[in-house]
Write a protein that binds this DNA or RNA. Structure first.
Lengths: 149, 149
DNA sequence: ATATGTGCAAATGGTTTGCAGTGAG
DNA sequence: CTCACTGCAAACCATTTGCACATAT
């Protein structure tokens, strides 16, 4: 995981460079997104901001997330079960392992995707720009809970 | 791709075996789903049925798709851009290559996922039950359209 | 005969939008 | 000073649900 402090700097610079304004609401959001602890959804981002800056509205969070998406500074995980989640710390495609019971999300190590992506491009003639790789199952804790329950 | 006729038989048997009724609406749907030509969404399934059996309602399509999902007889692709799409012909996880412009979806060949899945399980301690692997980009036709336009 | 399935229309829920007011630049 | 941003509330849209009727078994 990138250093959140550094990542925050990058995000601030990206905003400024593209002529967007830095409001207190956005600063609060960017702090949350720079770490993206636990791959938060819009709702979680909203909750975490309220401490920092209580008057923010959900609509604003949606708008800023959407802006960051367009800028390529957050990765959106569209997960049917769990809703949309975001990663602004590693905003490039990478695999995720998702617990279908508690919703916990991990970033496992897996380097080979670039090669596989090329192979798919060769095989299909598509010009591949990005991908999505998600594994679903039970996390160790939920496996235990299931046994004893 | 599995033979649609055979696949239809399997689906009919699965319904009956699990004590569900076979209505004309369902038969019409199952025919569409057994081939799953182009990985249709609910709306497309609905459109294709109307020829065969015009009084079907959208709600019924949703209900039956949902039933088949629970039965494990269709694979749901949750695609943010393009909406939910279904594959009732190969209802187990397999990779997809999706055109972000026209929405075309291909099933490329790629055998190595089982091994990768195991590796992820070992690395994370998760009990992995299924996965999702999607590649996004431009299909050959849309690449051309983009150049000349 | 019975309860599952259908079809309508209303409810839901996450996300987007319109717009008047606010504040960053 | 201006225009982008905010926040509220209304609009959206895919999906789900409730319920009375129809029908597969």
């Amino acid at each position: 995981m990138a250093d959140p402090r550094e990542r925050l700097e990058q995000l601030l610079r990206a905003l400024k460079d593209q002529g967007h304004r830095l409001t207190p609401q956005r600063l609060a959001m960017l702090k949350v997104i720079a770490r993206s602890e636990g791959h938060p959804g819009v709702e979680q981002i909203y909750e975490r901001i309220k401490g920092d800056f209580p008057t923010t509205s959900l609509a604003t969070v949606y708008k800023t997330v959407s802006l960051l998406k367009e800028m390529g500074e957050v990765l959106e995980l569209s997960l049917a079960h769990v809703g949309n989640r975001y990663d602004g710390n590693k905003p490039y495609p990478h695999p995720h392992v998702i617990c279908t019971k508690c919703g916990q999300i991990l970033d496992p190590e897996f380097a080979a995707m670039a090669g596989i992506s090329q192979e798919m491009a060769r095989q299909t003639g598509y010009q591949i720009t990005h991908h999505q790789l998600n594994f679903f199952g039970l996390c160790p804790k939920c496996q235990q809970d299931g046994q004893s329950a």
